[in-house]
Design a protein around this nucleic acid. Sequence first.
DNA 1: GTCTATAAAGCGATAGAC
DNA 2: GTCTATCGCTTTATAGAC
Lengths: 189, 189
Amino acid sequence: MARSITERTDIIPVLGEVFRERGFSGASLSEITLRTGLGKGSLYHFFPGGKEEMAKVVLDDVADWFETNVFAPLRNTDDPAAGIDQMFKASLLFFRSGRRVCLVGTFALDDTRDRFATAIQDYFAAWIRALTAALRRCGFANRAARAMAEDVVAGIQGALVLARSQDDPATFTRAIKRLQARTRSTPAA
Amino acid sequence: MARSITERTDIIPVLGEVFRERGFSGASLSEITLRTGLGKGSLYHFFPGGKEEMAKVVLDDVADWFETNVFAPLRNTDDPAAGIDQMFKASLLFFRSGRRVCLVGTFALDDTRDRFATAIQDYFAAWIRALTAALRRCGFANRAARAMAEDVVAGIQGALVLARSQDDPATFTRAIKRLQARTRSTPAA
DNA sequence: GTCTATAAAGCGATAGAC
DNA sequence: GTCTATCGCTTTATAGAC
């Protein structure tokens, strides 16, 4: 039986996991070779730019996933509350209830940020902007909506740190529940 | 003029900065050599355990700082509200208004966590426990205090991610202000 | 498209002179 | 206590056969 992975698109999720687990500088080509089952020759055939290109492609892939599964639903003007619920649902799913960290968040913390500055900046900016708009449509005042959006996005990122530090996914799911409750309550505040 | 750095305690803060900026795997001995102004011989004289010992010592140093400047004030039973205010003040100071990341948070996200699991777990557990107790003394119900404490600690960590992603310290200071306001309001909720 | 072999540089760590 | 020299290994990346 031949190897099933032959397409570039099949490699990207594996690359994502390695970068999430090891960080950019900690992800070695030897481990990527092992996890993908592909030799260096193949890897450089798919990604001539090496590790940096691999990470960039993964970042773009994550951005696409969030655009489709989070940002677009948030922009749905018909039912903004449903869009927000979808965001929390997608977050629980994507981050595997806190067992999986946010690649963009991991890259943001150390000097890896400087390598991918605009991708990292755009990801969070787009998230906050889309959520702010949805909250306004739900009745939040302009400034309150923006503040709440920053609180929610920061809250999710922080909950990932906390959950991993305690090695406890429940810490993440609890935090998500509370954030969701806040977005539903008192738009007048 | 002779070099001013000769004591181990003088090196620790520099090590902290390097680990914060590069992460554990990204922090190379050659950069540590450069930033401390000490050769490898001196470094291994102070830290026979190499990089791992350096990181452990920095983690312990951070834990000490927080014990003194954050956890102890939070445990002050006379004026719990003042303890909470001191926590926010110390956080703004320590994290340089979001220009400096949390070393423990950075270590928590990737596989560095497994190397220093208990130190990382204890740091956040101690923070949440001390803050929970202070909030209870301020009138929060048991469960609400714990929830709020988790929200605040996660909020600070997430705000660091966000501020760095946007390269904007104001994102951090704004988040701190909102978290502080939440700890002051409606203990009945 | 995938492999192995290899290059050149950097890594963490050690030895030993001073 | 600090240095330089060096070891052995891993790193990213390339070359070239198939």
